[in-house]
Design a protein around this nucleic acid. Structure first.
Lengths: 130, 130
DNA sequence: TTTAAAATTGTTATAATATAACACCATGTA
DNA sequence: TACATGGTGTTATATTATAACAATTTTAAA
């Protein structure tokens, strides 16, 4: 595991916002929310997002183009992510299942190819929406 | 399994193109390629893509915003997809592993939630790029 | 401590991806 | 017939993301 670099100002502002949000946030909604703090341009947001993803503080939900804080405290690097997505209310939760991550981390395909990273998105209906 | 509806003209043109492509195709590259056949607007492409995804003839690679024909002949509905992505050459392959799909289809999270659909993307280096 | 490399910032402009809204047409079926 | 459904064509626009450049700050090595 790498040494933990402290976040820069923009990174911290954007991480705090995502971390406090009850749901994944989209880049331009982040931009809107941080304009009062002096972050005015999309690139400033995307650069912070890229870095935060890289160091594992947040994850990107690819099918939704949205970002969520990592609550999987054991891991600060996003090499193995799994999410549950409700197709009605769009509630999104990070799945942390030891057996799932073990299974996927060890998965080898037919060619014996082993992977350094994966992202899994499950879709269904959450309790409320069922 | 549903009765197989024949594809409409636009759907067929776009499916044929993707099916013949050695790599996943992006929407606007599809648009460019089919302009000579009279498909002129993004919406015409996106509508066909949506339908083709819905009926499982193609899949969307979410992390790449690209579309690939389904070669998993046993299944015409895209409820369970897994891909292998080379991070250098961007070679993308659909994984068909009975044990993987069985494991994921039966996966239940802590709340006992069962999922109707999933998409898994593995990242690593392909044989050539290793 | 200086200095060069690396990372971050700020900015304008633009590229790439995707959908809204509306009118029209074809087909199946009650 | 008539009417519901799904597909088409079109213009306009929304959303997501990056290019290119200049300046500044941080880091770590000489």
């Amino acid at each position: 595991m790498h040494k933990e670099h402290p976040l820069t100002k923009n990174q911290q502002i954007i991480f705090d916002l995502i971390d406090k949000s009850p749901e994944p946030m989209k880049a331009y909604s982040i931009l809107f929310s941080v304009q009062k703090k002096g972050i005015k341009a999309p690139l400033q947001v995307y650069r912070a997002l890229d870095k935060l993803v890289e160091i594992g503080k947040i994850h990107k939900i690819e099918s939704r183009n949205a970002f969520i804080a990592c609550h999987n405290s054991s891991c600060q690097v996003s090499k193995a992510t799994a999410f549950s997505i409700c197709e009605i209310c769009e509630k999104i939760t990070e799945i942390s299942s030891a057996s799932l991550s073990k299974y996927l981390a060890n998965f080898k395909d037919k060619d014996g190819m082993k992977y350094s990273k994966y992202n899994l998105e499950f879709f269904g209906l959450c309790k409320k929406c069922r």
